[in-house]
Design a protein around this nucleic acid. Structure first.
Lengths: 146, 146
DNA sequence: CAGCATCCCCGGTGATACTG
DNA sequence: CAGTATCACCGGGGATGCTG
């Protein structure tokens, strides 16, 4: 199943157009971009990063703020983020145990980048909603005519 | 700042400067941000958007360039993107059938926004790799000590 | 309090076969 | 060529129970 050769897995969009260079990105399934994108796209990571923005929270506080997350998934998510160097974990040797989480400087920069995406979404949500409504209407009409 | 309920749909970014307060985003599971994030995070959407950047491709061309995608998933992905108004689909009434895909203007703006994320990834992939290596080393050491 | 281990389910995805 | 339809799989994620 190894990509092995991983031969130019993508379009080497040659010289076939009046356009200037399109930015070519790595399209391999195991590339770094996909790694991060998977992290972005998973269910809880972004929420954790957003909640840790300029804050320092302990496990239970995070869990309370993220309504719906299971203990297991919060743990798993935090471990991934810690492994990626996006979140820092501080264990206090006290009883009962206390563990604090905060963004690393790397995590902060990712958060800032993600904000652009969030703002894009908020600026264009109406267009998307309209597009969906139009699409559904067209689809329904087609199904109706048939 | 009080949270009240975690389902607060508001994001009060109003008159505050970018760093005076945390930017609150919609944390509901069904919010628009999550809708788009799910699209970003799925397996093929981003690849399609990237490949359609300043190009106009037909179904088979896309399929050939995206190594590993099944016919079914390419269809599903394109339908979602079309429904969201990100990709435009042109059907030519010829035999054999010819269908062209291209980004809409909305799709172009999303692509531009995503580029920031991709570039972040590329700039920081070394840090992430280092963080992972360090984490794994720590973990292995701990397991070893035990 | 902050986890880890286990079981289990569901939906996203792939493979395959068929069609206009 | 560009799909649609159906089946099967597997892994993400929830629920639960147990520990330091």
């Amino acid at each position: 199943m190894e990509e092995g050769t991983s031969k130019s897995p993508t379009h080497s969009c040659g010289t076939d157009g009046p356009y200037t260079d399109a930015y070519q990105w790595d399209t391999r399934e195991d590339c770094e971009v996909r790694q991060i994108l998977d992290r972005i796209g998973d269910k809880w990571s972004l929420l954790v990063i957003a909640l840790l923005d300029r804050r320092r929270l302990r496990f239970t506080e995070l869990r309370r703020e993220i309504d719906g997350v299971s203990q297991r998934m919060l743990t798993v998510t935090l471990r991934q983020l810690e492994r990626d160097g996006l979140v820092h974990r501080t264990v206090h040797a006290v009883v009962p145990p206390r563990v604090d989480y905060e963004l690393t400087s790397l995590g902060v920069t990712l958060h800032e980048t993600i904000q652009a995406l969030v703002m894009w979404t908020e600026s264009h949500q109406n267009e998307i909603a309209a597009a969906r409504a139009a699409y559904d209407a067209r689809t329904a009409a087609a199904a109706n005519a048939q």
